[in-house]
């Protein structure tokens, strides 16, 4: 008897809970207590998750980041990439060897003074820029062992990616002009830094216009 009544009780409760589910009433608590109890169990299953499961935390764990800034500082004395190229300049003196015409040897040249400027979002060459490139071409034809790299730069207006493309176009404009003046294309390489290496901080328009430029650097 006891058993039977308890059976009925359970069935009754079950039916009632179904009825209340639809309306959302206090009886749900009974159900939810179970649901609440369950998650605890579930959560135990989840236990391992916080550590192994999600790929993300692992990720961060992998590239050990504990003391990033400190580490990074010492080994990097200066900006890495471009600097070496500047140093590469001295080796020029070699041409001396062959030249029968004695004087016109490795003529020094102030590449900084030949730097060319551009208008905003533009890569066409001004008259002044062309003059500078003509001087450069003349020097290169006289010093036939010299090679240069043209660095294209932009101001900081606009997005980096577009500016990288713009810097590339600026470098290419100069390269094409040099080629038209007879400089072999193998002697001129290009690289774009976009807005990454401003000459001066991009504060006002005056500074920005200085940053829209091509620079010339001797390479081997």
């Amino acid at each position: 008897m006891l058993k039977k009544s308890s059976v009925w009780l359970v069935v009754l409760i079950s039916i009632m809970s179904i009825a209340f589910i639809a309306t959302g009433c206090a009886k749900k608590q009974v159900v939810k207590e179970e649901a609440a109890a369950k998650p605890v169990v579930e959560a135990k299953k989840e236990e391992p998750k916080p550590t192994p499961a999600a790929p993300a935390p692992r990720v961060e764990a992998a590239p050990p980041a504990p003391t990033p800034r400190v580490e990074a500082a010492p080994p990097a004395p200066t900006p890495p990439a471009p600097a070496p190229r500047v140093e590469a300049a001295p080796p020029a003196p070699t041409p001396r060897v062959e030249a029968a015409p004695p004087a016109p040897t490795p003529e020094p040249i102030d590449l900084v003074s030949l730097r060319i400027q551009f208008a905003f979002d533009d890569y066409s060459l001004s008259t002044k820029s062309k003059e500078n490139l003509e001087k450069l071409a003349a020097w290169m034809s006289k010093n036939s062992r010299e090679k240069i790299q043209i660095e294209g730069h932009t101001c900081d207006i606009g997005t980096n990616e577009y500016n990288l493309a713009l810097g590339e176009r600026r470098a290419n404009s100069a390269k094409k002009y040099l080629e038209a003046l007879g400089v072999g294309s193998a002697r001129v390489s290009t690289i774009s830094y976009g807005e990454e290496r401003p000459l001066v901080p991009n504060k006002e328009e005056a500074e920005r216009s200085k940053n829209r430029r091509d620079e010339f650097v001797k390479t081997r």
């Binding site: 206090a26 608590q29 939810k32 649901a35 609440a36 998650p39 605890v40 579930e42 236990e47 916080p50």
Partner: peptide, 12 residues
Amino acid sequence: QRELIIGKRYIG
């Protein structure tokens, strides 16, 4: 409704 919607335990 005065009821529990979710209850979770996380261990890690």
